[in-house]
Simulated scan of single mutants.
Amino acid sequence: MNPLSEIPLSVWRSRGQTFDFKGHAIRYWVAGQGEPLLLLHGFPTASWDWHYLWQPLARHYRLIACDMLGFGDSSKPQEHRYSLLEQADLQQALLAHVRVDTPVHVLAHDYGDSVAQELLARHRDGLASIASCVFLNGGLFPEAHHAVLIQKLLISPLGWLAARAFSRDTLVNSVTRIYGPATRPSESALDDCWSLIQSNQGTRVLHRLACYLIERRLRRDRWVTAMQHAGVPMRFINGGWDPVCGKAMLVRYRELIYRADTILLPDIGHYPHTEAPVQVLRHYLAFRAGLRPAGICHTG
C-alpha cells in the first residue's frame, strides 16, 4: 500500500502557472524551498507523473517542473518539428523564468532522461550548471532499449495514422504491459493520463513527439560521453520488471559508467515514481545525503 498522498489531477492543474516559450504556452509548477530540483517527465505523459513525490520532495528542495512542449496541458503545435534539444532549451528557459541562478539538481524519467542527458552535455560544454542527476527508467543507451509496438508504429511511415487512431484503449494496452505485476495503474489513473494526452488535441502530435526515439540514437555518443565525463554525481534507479528499459538497461549502465551508482527495484516496472514512490523517495534522499556507495548495485 502506498502511504504517500496523491495529488488529484484537478488540484494539480489548478496549481499550475503558464509562461511563454517561443510563442508557445507552457504549463509549469513550483513548490518548496532550498536547492533547486528540476523534474523531467516521460513520454507520453506529463509532470503530474511526479504527484506522489511532489509534496515529500518539496519539504527538502525547491521543485520546478513543466509539461514539455507537446505534452500535458502545454501547447501542442501540430506542424512543429519536436526535438529533445529544444526541450532542453525549454528547461533552461524555465529555470531562467523562475530565476534559478545556482546549479540545479535533476530527477528524470523516460523521455526526460534524454533531456537530462543533453543538459549534462551542456554542463560539460559550460552551457549549463548541473549539480547532480538521478535517472529513472529510460532509454539512456539505445542499444539496450526495446520499443513497444505503438512506439514502432508512431515512428513508421504510417505514424500519423497511428497517432490519429491512438485511444484510451491503446494507452491501456501499451502502458499496463510495462508496469510491475502488482503495481498496475488504477482505472482512475489511466483516465487522468488519457486526459493529459488528449488535452489540446495531443494525439495529433504523438508521431512527431515519438521521433525522439530516432534522435536519441543520433545523439547517443554525445550523451554517453557526457555521462562518463561531465563530473556530475549520478544515480540510476531502475524498475527491473520493465520490458522496455528495465534490468538490461541497468546492466548496460554498469558496463559504461565508471563506479556506477545503481538501484534495482526487481518487481517494479517502467514507472518507479508511481509504482513504488516510497522506495524512490528513500533512494533519492539517500543519494542527496551523500550515501552513495560507489560500484554497488543495491536491491530494494
Rank of each mutant, 00 (worst) to 15 (best):
M1W: 14
L4Y: 04
E6I: 13
P8D: 05
S10N: 04
W12Q: 00
S14W: 00
Q17L: 02
T18V: 12
F21D: 03
G23Y: 04
I26V: 08
Y28N: 10
A31G: 15
Q33I: 02
G34H: 07
E35T: 15
L37P: 09
H41K: 10
F43R: 00
T45Y: 02
A46G: 03
S47E: 03
D49W: 00
H51L: 03
Y52D: 01
L53C: 12
R62I: 01
L63R: 07
L63Y: 01
C66G: 01
D67I: 03
G70R: 06
F71L: 08
G72T: 00
D73K: 01
S75W: 04
S75T: 06
K76C: 07
E79H: 14
Y82K: 05
S83H: 01
D89W: 15
D89C: 02
Q91E: 10
Q91C: 07
A93E: 08
V98M: 13
R99P: 01
D101G: 11
P103F: 02
H105K: 05
H105C: 05
G112W: 01
S114F: 01
S114A: 09
V115Y: 13
V115L: 06
E118F: 14
E118K: 02
A121T: 10
A121H: 07
G126F: 01
L127Q: 15
S132Q: 12
S132N: 11
L140I: 11
L140E: 02
E143Y: 02
E143P: 05
H146N: 06
V148S: 09
Q151M: 13
K152M: 03
L154R: 07
L154K: 06
P157S: 14
L158Q: 15
L158W: 15
G159S: 11
A163R: 05
R164G: 01
S167L: 08
S167V: 06
S174M: 10
A182E: 14
S186G: 12
L190C: 12
D191W: 00
D192G: 11
D192V: 09
C193M: 15
Q198Y: 02
S199F: 12
S199C: 11
G202P: 01
T203H: 11
V205P: 04
H207M: 06
R208W: 03
L213P: 03
L213W: 13
R216S: 07
R220N: 09
D221E: 10
D221A: 08
R222L: 10
W223M: 03
W223E: 03
A226P: 08
P233R: 13
M234Q: 12
N238Y: 01
G240R: 05
D242Q: 10
D242S: 09
V244G: 09
C245M: 07
G246S: 13
K247H: 14
A248P: 09
A248M: 08
L250R: 04
V251A: 11
L256G: 15
I257A: 08
D261R: 15
T262L: 11
L265Y: 04
P266R: 00
D267I: 11
H273Y: 02
T274F: 00
P277F: 02
V280T: 05
L281F: 05
L285W: 00
F287Q: 13
F287M: 12
F287N: 15
F287A: 14
F287E: 14
A289P: 06
G290M: 10
P293N: 13
P293H: 13
P293D: 14
I296A: 12
